[in-house]
């Protein structure tokens, strides 16, 4: 009886009291597809406007439309693929080696105390070395050609991947491992069916960082001795103070970064659809 009265009174609460304010919003990332590109376009329009009116001088920033024209020229002459092709190949080979070894070593560190005791200090020692500083050494070890570039990218992506992977293994829910043991699963089954899938979220978010570092090192490697490649293109433009071409090169790198990030996102959505 009293419940019925309460619910009948509900609609006219407006004149019996103040509505309870909503304060539960936020802290829940949702997918907003258009905000990123929109901000991007606005920024470019702003620069275009600034360079046209002279608020931004031509020496400070190139005009976006000029950069676009350079880019179209690059495309038409076929030079784009001549530069981009080798770069993508180097990134693919180097990052595959580095990430593959990184995940493997990271998982081993996560699983075995002896490996952990031996390798974590080593990884901590390698991590902060600017890998570019080692390029001359790599040239001696692996040759001036592709070998040294692969090695540089591989080493650069390796360390962050190791750290992400063993952190991810450490974070796997121990109660799930206990459960596996309580059902007498073999050690190998526990690793394959519980530890690896449980570590996947951490490994994939480490992948984002590693691949971005891979792109940075790719360019660095190509700046030191490469005929073709985005890095070589940028270096040449820079030494001629050709801002349009410099920015066309930088834009290619940004687009590459966005694409890599988007593909990791796509893999995450596919592989981690079980996440709450």
């Amino acid at each position: 009886m009293s419940e019925a009265t309460a619910s009948r009174n509900a609609p006219d609460t407006a004149d019996t009291g103040k509505r309870v304010a909503f304060r539960g919003g936020g802290f829940a990332p949702t997918r907003k597809r258009w905000i990123g590109p929109l901000l991007f376009i606005l920024l470019i329009l702003l620069i275009e406007w600034g360079t046209r009116t002279g608020v931004i001088s031509n020496l400070t920033l190139p005009r976006p439309s000029d950069v676009l024209a350079t880019f179209v020229e690059l495309w038409d002459s076929g030079l784009l693929w001549k530069h981009l092709g080798p770069s993508l190949g180097r990134l693919a080979v180097g990052a595959t080696l580095g990430v593959g070894a990184g995940v493997a070593i990271g998982v081993l560190i996560g699983l075995f105390s002896y490996v952990r005791a031996g390798l974590t200090p080593l990884v901590a020692a390698i991590f902060p070395i600017p890998k570019i500083a080692l390029l001359p050494l790599f040239v001696i070890w692996f040759g001036i050609d592709e070998g040294s570039k692969y090695a540089l990218i591989a080493l650069g992506t390796f360390t962050p991947t190791v750290v992400a992977a063993y952190g991810a293994v450490d974070n796997v829910d121990r109660s799930l491992i206990r459960m596996g043991q309580s059902f007498n699963l073999s050690w190998f089954s526990i690793v394959r069916k519980i530890v690896l899938p449980g570590a996947m979220p951490g490994i994939l978010s480490g992948l984002r960082v590693s691949l971005a570092i891979g792109i940075i090192l790719l360019v660095a490697a190509e700046m030191l001795g490469a005929e073709y490649g985005v890095g070589a293109y940028i270096l040449e433009a820079g030494s001629l103070y050709d801002l349009e071409r410099l920015f066309a090169g930088v834009t290619i790198l940004s687009v590459l970064g966005v694409l890599v990030n988007a593909s990791v996102g796509a893999i995450e959505r596919r592989l981690l659809n079980w996440r709450v």
Partner: peptide
């Protein structure tokens, strides 16, 4: 065989 308080199901 255990039955755990927190279920211990593999979420994936």
């Amino acid at each position: 065989t255990f039955i755990f308080q927190d279920f211990a199901l593999l979420p994936w």
